[in-house]
Simulated assay, not measured.
Amino acid sequence: MKKWLLTLLFSTALVLGACGGDDGDTEESSDGGDSVDTAAAEEIYESNCTACHGADLSGGQGPDLTSVGADHSADEIADIIENGQGGMPPQDVSGEDLDTLSNWLADMQ
């Protein structure tokens, strides 16, 4: 009886541990900083950036952003979003949305 109960408890713990409860909406920043709310960042990107940079960040009218984090820090990306650069006009993204978007893009390497 004890062996059966121990097996049942172990199996339950194993199944629950495998589930993990992680929905994948946040991930750790590559620079060891704050975590990025991926779902929120993707929504902000979709609302403000996809027309020029494509739904998959691969570019189009604007440049490819799939590895923008390799060339620019989150602060540099935020500055570009706020003030524009080259043919890109300033965007109407600010506050927490700007931080979320720029940190998410900075993780693209």
Rank of each mutant, 00 (worst) to 15 (best):
N83H: 15
C52M: 07
S67N: 10
M88I: 08
D22V: 08
S30W: 04
P90T: 04
A78E: 00
S94T: 10
I80Y: 01
G17S: 01
A39N: 14
D97I: 07
E42C: 09
D97G: 13
G33M: 07
S47M: 03
D25I: 07
F10A: 15
N83T: 03
Y45K: 15
T12E: 09
S73V: 00
C52S: 10
D107G: 15
T38P: 05
S67V: 01
G86S: 11
A70T: 12
S102G: 01
G84T: 10
D37W: 07
T66A: 06
G21R: 08
L105T: 15
D79E: 07
E46C: 07
D75M: 10
D56C: 12
E27P: 02
D79L: 11
M1L: 11
L6R: 11
C52T: 07
E82F: 02
W104F: 15
V68Y: 09
S11G: 14
Q91H: 08
G20E: 05
Q85P: 03
G86R: 09
E96H: 04
E28N: 11
T7P: 03
L6Y: 12
A55Q: 02
L57G: 04
G21Q: 08
D64W: 02
G87R: 05
D56W: 07
T12A: 13
T7L: 15
D25Y: 09
D107C: 14
T26A: 12
D79V: 12
F10I: 13
L16P: 13
G21E: 08
W104C: 09
A74V: 02
G21Y: 03
N83A: 01
I81E: 05
G87D: 02
C49M: 11
V93Y: 03
N103I: 06
C52E: 09
L9R: 05
G20V: 02
G60P: 06
S35Y: 01
A41W: 03
A78I: 00
A74C: 11
E82C: 07
F10Y: 06
L101K: 05
F10L: 15
A18I: 00
G95R: 07
T50C: 10
G86Q: 10
D56F: 12
I44N: 00
H72M: 12
A74N: 03
L105Q: 03
S11F: 10
A55F: 02
D56Q: 06
D97E: 08
E82Q: 11
L6E: 08
E43Y: 04
D64N: 15
D34W: 02
A41D: 04
Q109A: 09
T50G: 11
D92H: 03
G32A: 09
N83R: 06
K3G: 04
P90H: 14
Q61L: 10
M1E: 10
T12C: 13
K2S: 14
G59F: 02
E28Q: 13
T50E: 09
Q109G: 14
D23T: 06
T66H: 06
D31F: 01
S67H: 05
A74K: 01
S30E: 14
A13L: 14
A55K: 05
W4S: 11
N83K: 08
A13Q: 09
G87M: 05
L65N: 12
L14D: 04
D71H: 02
D64M: 03
S73C: 06
D107Q: 14
A41K: 04
I80C: 09
T12Y: 03
D99N: 12
G87P: 04
N48P: 13
M108P: 04
N83L: 09
E76P: 00
Y45P: 12
G84Y: 06
I80F: 11
G95P: 15
